[in-house]
Each structure stands twice: as C-alpha cells, then as structure tokens.
C-alpha cells in the first residue's frame, strides 16, 4: 500500500474530482467499456492462441506485425488506420479454410488459400480478434488486440 497523509489524500481526492470534470472520459469510450461486458464467459471453451512478444519491428512498408501461436500459428500484418487491412498466414497441421475476423460490433469470414494466406480489407478500426473454426474441434482464437 502506498502511504499518504490525510492532507495528501484530501488533495488527491480533490484533484481526481477536478480531473474528472475538466478532462472527462468521452462517452463513447465508457459505452464501449460497458458493452465489453456482453462477452463475459461467452467463450469459456475456446482454445487461446498466445500472443508472441512484439519482437519484430514495424516494417518500412508501414505494416504492423502481430504473431500468435498455439494449436495453430497466425502471423498477420495490418495496414491503414481508419480502415484497416489485415494480411496474414495461418500455419497449422490442420487445414483451415477460413479465418473469422471479429470486432466488438461484428465479424467477417475470409478465405484461407491452400498456402495458408488470407487477406481482408476495410475493417473498422479498434480491437479485433481472429478465430479459426473446424468442425469437430474447439474454436482456436487470439485474444483481442489493436491491429
């Protein structure tokens, strides 16, 4: 625990109140936080793909790289800010014919070619997750990440 005198605590409380009024959290940010609650315990049986540390530098092309691994591996590069494009590679012993890209308000399914490549454009900005589905197997998914 941190230690503060009563005067410190009073000043910090006063400052918190003032910051709250002077620099409030935008309403849409709070609304998105509340909406996230809809996902609680919704996917307890999914298999998670772990995110690899962001070791790869951003490439000169401006693409942002993300890598996930587990039952399958997904390497993905994102470009664009307002409208995001994801191009990636699925590596797995199992054959996946599609990747599902989910964002908080929707999702889209994109085909994976025979070499494991996929490419999807015009995604809304904000957090996304990637899902791999195959009949008879649990869904494999990445956690939410900002692409």
């Amino acid at each position: 625990m941190t230690y503060f005198s009563d005067a410190d605590r009073a000043l910090l409380a006063e400052l918190g109140d003032l910051l709250d009024r002077g620099d409030p959290v935008p309403e849409h940010v709070t609304a998105a936080a509340v909406a996230a609650g809809e996902l609680i315990d919704a996917h307890w049986d999914w298999e998670w793909l772990d995110r690899l540390a962001d070791v790869r530098p951003v490439r000169a092309s401006g693409a942002r790289a993300h890598s996930f691994t587990g039952r399958a591996s997904i390497d993905v590069e994102a470009t664009g800010i307002a409208k995001v494009r994801l191009a990636g590679l699925v590596t797995s012993a199992e054959r996946f014919s599609s990747v599902e890209v989910c964002w908080p308000a929707g999702s889209t399914s994109v085909a994976v070619d025979s070499c494991g490549r996929f490419d999807v454009a015009d995604l809304p900005n904000g957090p996304v997750r990637l899902l791999l589905r195959r009949p008879g197997l649990p869904v494999a998914t990445t956690g939410w990440f900002v692409p």
């Binding site: 940010v29 609650g37 900002v146």
Partner: peptide, 18 residues
C-alpha cells in the same frame, strides 16, 4: 488510440474475468 486501448483493456478483462 486511447479509445482503442481502453476498449481492448475492457474486452480482455471481460474474457479473463474468471
């Protein structure tokens, strides 16, 4: 970007709650 970070943080919490 801060809005994205906030949203991602709450989404992660919702799914890691247990």
């Amino acid at each position: 970007d801060a809005a994205d970070v906030s949203q991602a943080t709450w989404l992660i919490l919702a799914e890691k709650l247990g």
